[in-house]
Nucleic acid binder design. Structure first.
Lengths: 219, 219
DNA sequence: GCGAAATTGGAAAGTCAATTCCAATCCTTG
DNA sequence: CAAGGATTGGAATTGACTTTCCAATTTCGC
C-alpha cells in the first residue's frame, strides 16, 4: 500500500476520557506553539499546560513532529470553522471591512501579540519541515478560497467588472492581512494592519465604483 | 549612566584578524538563522559554518542573545545599504515595480525559500525577545521610510494628490511584500508575491492617474 | 624586541529536551 | 466478571546545547 511518504503516527482516541485528554493536549500545544513558537515549545511545556504525562502525548501523537502536524491541522480547520458564518458572506466591500476590522479588534485585545496563528507557523516551519509546509499551504488556500469566492460572487452580480482578477485581489488581501499582522506584531500596534488592509479594500472599493460607473455609462 | 535596560555584551574586534573572524561569525550566523531560524541554529552550527571555536563566538558576542541581536542589526543595516541606490529612487510607479520585481526574481532564484530576512526574524522573535523586537521594528521603519519618502516626493511633484496618505500606501506596500513573501514561501511559488505587490502598485498607479486627471480638469 | 592585551583551542560542567520503556490502572465487550 | 486493549504515571536513557574556564598563542603599542 503506497503512502504519501510522510507517515505521522497520530492515533485516535477510542474512549471518551481518551478523547478528552487528546483534545486537552492539542489545545495546549496549539496555544503554546502560538505563544512561543514551535521550537520554543517543549513537550514538558505541553505536559504542564495540559496536565498530562509524557506518555499520553507520545501515545496520541507519536512524536513532536506528529504533534506539530496535528496543531497545524487544528489551526487550519477549527479556526476556519469558527469564522465560517462570516467567511461565507464576504461578498461586499462592507463585509470585507467588517471581517478585517474584527481581526483588528482581536489584535488590539491581545496587544498585538502573536500575529496570525497560521502565519506564524508558516514562517517558522515552511523551510524546515516539508510536510508541515504542505499542511500550511492547504490552510492558506482555504482562506484564499473563502475571500475569492466572495469576490467572485460580487463579480457575477456585477459589482465588479467581468474582467476583474479576483484571484489576485484575494491574494492581495490575504497578503495584506498577513503582512499587516506581522508589522502590527513587531510594532505592538494594530495601526499598520489597519492601514495595509484598508488600502487593499479601498482598492477593491474603487473597482466596484468603476464597475458602477461603467454600467451607468453603458445604459 | 542609565542604560536601555538590555545590555548585550558585544565586543568590537581591535585587531585585523579579529575583525575578520567577527565578520565571519556574523555572516555565518545570519545565513544560518535565515535558513533554519534562530531557534534552529545552534552555536556548534555557527562554529562549523564559520570555522571558528566556541570561545571566539562568546568572546565577540557574549552569548547567543547577543549574537542574535548582532544578526538583527546586520540584516537591518547591511541589507538596507546594499539596496540604497534603488531605495533612494522609489519615486515613480515604474521604480516601485522594478524594485519589487527584483525581489521576485531573487525569490525565483532561491525557489522561494526563506522569505524575507527581517520578516522571518520578526515573526520568530517579536513575541519572545523584547529587545529583538525593538531592533526589528527599527529595521522595518527604515524600509517604510524609504518607500514613504519616495511617495512623498511623488506627491510634492504632483504625481500624487496633495491629500494622499503616503504613510498608509507605504505601509500597505511593505505589508504586501511581507505577506506576499510569506505566501510565496509556503507555496514555493513567487506568484502570490507578485500578485499581492502588483495589486498595491496598481492601486498607487490608479491614484497617480487620478491626480493627472484632476490636474487636466483644473486647467 | 617586550609586555600587555587580544585572540584562540578545546575540554568540561551543568541543564534540559526528546523519546523509550514498563508497570499499573481503567474501560469495554462479550 | 474476566480478558484484552486503551490509557496513564513516572523513571531512565540518550544526546545535544549553552556556557564557562583556562591554558596557549598571537598581535599591538611603544
Amino acid at each position: 500500500m503506497p503512502t504519501t511518504g510522510v507517515e505521522t503516527r497520530v492515533k485516535a482516541a477510542s474512549t471518551e476520557g481518551g478523547r478528552r485528554t487528546r483534545d486537552r493536549i492539542l489545545r495546549a500545544a496549539a496555544e503554546l506553539m502560538f505563544e512561543q513558537g514551535v521550537a520554543g515549545t517543549s513537550i514538558p511545556d505541553v505536559q504542564r499546560r495540559a496536565q498530562v504525562s509524557a506518555s499520553q502525548i507520545y501515545h496520541y501523537f507519536g512524536d513532536k513532529k506528529g504533534l506539530t502536524a496535528a496543531v497545524i491541522e487544528y489551526q487550519s480547520t477549527v479556526k476556519l470553522e469558527q469564522q465560517r458564518p462570516l467567511l461565507d458572506h464576504l461578498d461586499s466591500v462592507d463585509a470585507l471591512r467588517e471581517w478585517c476590522e474584527r481581526a483588528a479588534v482581536r489584535l488590539d485585545a491581545v496587544h498585538c501579540a502573536g500575529g496570525c496563528e497560521i502565519g506564524s507557523l508558516a514562517s517558522e516551519l515552511s523551510d524546515i519541515d516539508p510536510s508541515a509546509r504542505l499542511g500550511l499551504a492547504t490552510g492558506f488556500a482555504a482562506w484564499q478560497a473563502a475571500i475569492e469566492s466572495g469576490l467572485a460572487r460580487m463579480r457575477e452580480r456585477g459589482d465588479l467588472g467581468a474582467d476583474e482578477d479576483v484571484t489576485a485581489l484575494a491574494v492581495a488581501l490575504l497578503a495584506a492581512i498577513q503582512g499587516g499582522m506581522l508589522l502590527a506584531q513587531v510594532n505592538r500596534d494594530a495601526t499598520p494592519y489597519r492601514r495595509a488592509v484598508n488600502v487593499v479594500i479601498d482598492h477593491i472599493a474603487d473597482r466596484v465604483a468603476a464597475a458602477r460607473a461603467a454600467r451607468s455609462t453603458d445604459r
